[in-house]
């Protein structure tokens, strides 16, 4: 055999080893996820029906449902999105397009990167002190939503900056050269061209927030709740008419807390409830991520450099 054959053979072997290794690790990850979902489905699927969504929690496992929890989760996510998206977008745009690069913005940059790694319970403690006590928001949907907004703000900022940075400088120069102002460049070009990347980042951040439990327990979210927040302008039990934003100030629970509550109960039946709630949460997260992928795909197809 010629020496060159030997070298080629060796290269091909390395190639094969890496390929096998990669595929097996991938299967391991996917397999774990699959087993997890299968397990949840096996335990909880029998409990998943319309009644499960339309019933409040109960002492009787077979009557208990996740009505308060999914409504709470939905409202919390709404508040989180409405807080984190404008703040994160504005901060990202400012840092990327307006701020001069100096030691101060460098410091901010490092801080944002660090904030993304802070344990979520620390955000809970901060929110407890700041939102619940100092600002008197109480243990409300507003407090919960803003807490999670703090939590995902760094992710939104980083996603915004990355998306803006991926736009070639030549696009900015083309627009400036025609006489556009900074804001016109952002409004007419940068935001539309980066919308795909930004929304992907935002959606993934929301996907993280939806499963958060610790910070919400820290600010005092309830584990058992048998009423919904008042719809705007509806009549309340007290005889008063609810304001447009009364729902913001109501107590709440969310899916992961409800799930945690059931897990800690004795008895098989409650475990089935927990599994069913977990399945709902899992599907919601997967759904959110699927939307993110869809958005990214559509935007990528529309814009290419």
């Amino acid at each position: 055999m010629r020496p060159i054959d030997h070298t080629i053979r060796r290269g091909q072997l390395q190639d094969l080893i890496f390929r096998v290794l990669g595929v097996s690790l991938l299967l391991l990850c996917l397999g774990t996820l699959g087993v997890l979902i299968f397990n949840l489905a096996h335990d909880g699927l029998s409990r998943l029906d319309l009644k499960f969504f339309s019933s409040f929690a109960s002492r009787h496992a077979d009557e208990a449902g996740i009505k308060a929890a999914w409504v709470g989760t939905a409202l919390i996510m709404l508040v989180t999105a409405l807080t984190a998206i404008p703040l994160g977008l504005a901060a990202g745009i400012y840092l990327e397009e307006y701020a001069r690069k100096n030691w101060f913005t460098g410091l901010i940059e490092i801080n944002i990167a660090n904030l993304a790694g802070v344990p979520s319970i620390i955000y809970g403690l901060m929110a407890l002190g700041l939102l619940v006590y100092k600002l008197n928001f109480g243990r409300s949907i507003l407090s919960g939503g803003v807490t999670l907004a703090f939590l995902i703000l760094p992710i939104v900022i980083v996603a915004t900056r990355e998306a803006l940075r991926s736009i070639p400088q030549s696009m900015r120069e083309a627009a400036y050269a025609l006489g556009a102002t900074r804001w016109q460049v952002i409004r007419h070009h940068l935001l539309p061209y980066s919308a795909g990347g930004i929304s992907t980042g935002v959606i993934i951040a929301l996907g993280r927030a939806i499963g958060e439990t610790a910070p919400l327990i820290t600010i005092g979210a309830l584990t058992y709740i048998a009423f919904l927040p008042p719809a705007p302008f509806s009549m309340m039990d007290s005889g008063h008419r609810a304001g447009a934003f009364s729902w913001l100030m109501t107590d709440f629970t969310v899916l992961p807390i409800q799930m945690f509550n059931w897990v800690s109960m004795p008895g098989e039946d409650f475990q089935a409830n927990a599994a069913a709630a977990g399945l709902v949460l899992m599907l919601a997260t997967l759904g959110i991520n699927a939307v993110a992928i869809g958005v990214r795909y559509r935007m990528r197809r529309r814009i290419k450099w």
Partner: peptide, 12 residues
């Protein structure tokens, strides 16, 4: 004063 750049850079 308008400008035409080195690489074509139309907007998407």
């Amino acid at each position: 004063v308008s400008m035409v750049f080195q690489k074509p850079n139309p907007f998407p």
